[in-house]
Nucleic acid binder design. Sequence first.
DNA 1: CAGAATCCCTGCCGATACTG
DNA 2: CAGTATCGGCAGGGATTCTG
Lengths: 118, 118
Amino acid sequence: MKDLVSRCPIEEVMQIMSGRWPTLLIYYLKQGTKRFSDLRRDNPTISHKMLTLELRKLEDAGIVERTEFEGYPLRVEYDLTSAGLKLVPLLDALGNWWETVEAGPAHASTSPVKLSQK
Amino acid sequence: MKDLVSRCPIEEVMQIMSGRWPTLLIYYLKQGTKRFSDLRRDNPTISHKMLTLELRKLEDAGIVERTEFEGYPLRVEYDLTSAGLKLVPLLDALGNWWETVEAGPAHASTSPVKLSQK
DNA sequence: CAGAATCCCTGCCGATACTG
DNA sequence: CAGTATCGGCAGGGATTCTG
């Protein structure tokens, strides 16, 4: 998912939000200010590297704000920007929609979606 | 992006919608019934294989409906399900939100998001 | 503690060829 | 025409090490 094939805003958002981590990070950040290590605790499966990369991406997108404090040990805080806060209800709407799909008649007799879930 | 790390519906949706193609396919399918070759024409950069895989995924998710017709040459039609139709306005909302972010004050002096765009 | 840099491997996805 | 099957390259992302 590198280049865009159209100049569609939806495609641009998906470029940001695609993947496992962006929505999760937003979910935890909406609980309030978090430090790097907090976010690591929140989801222990993300690697150190991915956390920094994803946070950087969200920061560049204007969704997350990064505040650095002087002194030792280093300390950085992350918050949702106002734009990021406005995003939250939209994601919730998506989640609600999905729950109706899962329970809906579309899969009356079949199992929902097959997701490899080790 | 294989396994889920939480039982959050948002994460489940993203499992489906992540990547370059799902939103694009939905975008074209909302124009009405499409055949396999129509969708290939709509976005020429998707590979034969990916198109079938993505369509299958959306079908399993209950977003797209596949109708097969007997006879030669084979003929298959794709439509959005009612659930898929309900998804469209949500994606539009995301797109609109993004446009406000891009134009917003978050990047007053910096360039928007850096996307590799060859 | 936050994160930059390096190495390395897995799995995604493209190309090609074949079936109904 | 629509779809499977197989192979292979390459990039996404994990583990580790190093700096401020």
